[in-house]
Amino acid sequence: MGDAMLAISNLNKRFDTAAGHVQALYNVDLQVQEGEFVTVIGPSGCGKSTLLRIVAGLDSGYTGSVTLEGVQIGGPGIDKGFIFQEHRLFPWLTVEKNIASDLPLGNKEVRQKVDELIELVKLKGFEKSYPRELSGGMAQRVAIARALLRNPKILLLDEPFGALDAFTRAHMQTVLLDIWRTNQTTMIFVTHDIDEAVFLGNRVVILEPRPGKIRNIIPIDLPYPRKKTTTSFQELRLKVLNQFEKVDELELTDGAGI
């Protein structure tokens, strides 16, 4: 694993609060290969969001090293796409303008790329809609397109489907896998849903809280497209679930990550 695209080693992060110190991340080591789809799962407070935000360059004040293609991460930038739990679209811009954001839509190249992406995330016909006119799933697809337009080396997703209903969520999962297979973008996907983690990832990284550290990494060697009903899927799902039986506080359902 020497030529990993993203290399995290000996990462520690502490939050100082009035009540004392919280060890959000403790000696985290993780390598992600180019084109890989890694899902990160854990109960609330295990530091999974913090981990993602550090990789994005949004949080600082950690010790250890985090390198993307061998370069230490300095701050946020377009080489790292980030999808938040809420869509965070600019409410005053239409769908196409949101995707373009600071890039000029008048530019032929940008225009073409935006159109392609709208096609990819299946939003044809909604180019001129405002965010308030979109459903949660559609808005999140716009956010994904917005991140992809900048050709990120890696796409970081922080519980992006956490606020969606079960049906929309299942649909979005297939859409995301489609995008991954078409674009071959490296993905790190944080979730608190075991099904989702097993369904999407090549590997499932299991974090445990207090202090936040990696408990186990389980490879999922099922071929895509996966079916949640197959026995092999269920076996892997149980294997992941068993990891949590050992975690004292099982808080998988509320999903209010830090």
């Binding site: 949004l58 701050g75 946020p76 938040f84 965070r88 600019f90 005053w92 954001s101 600071d102 900048r150």
Partner: peptide, 23 residues
């Protein structure tokens, strides 16, 4: 939260003002 988006999308300081703050 939108400021974070602007940072992630790599807005320049000028673009932050024109595209985010003023609207």
């Amino acid at each position: 939260k939108l400021f974070e988006v602007a940072r992630v999308l790599g807005f320049s300081r000028m673009k932050q003002i024109i595209r985010l703050v003023l609207p």
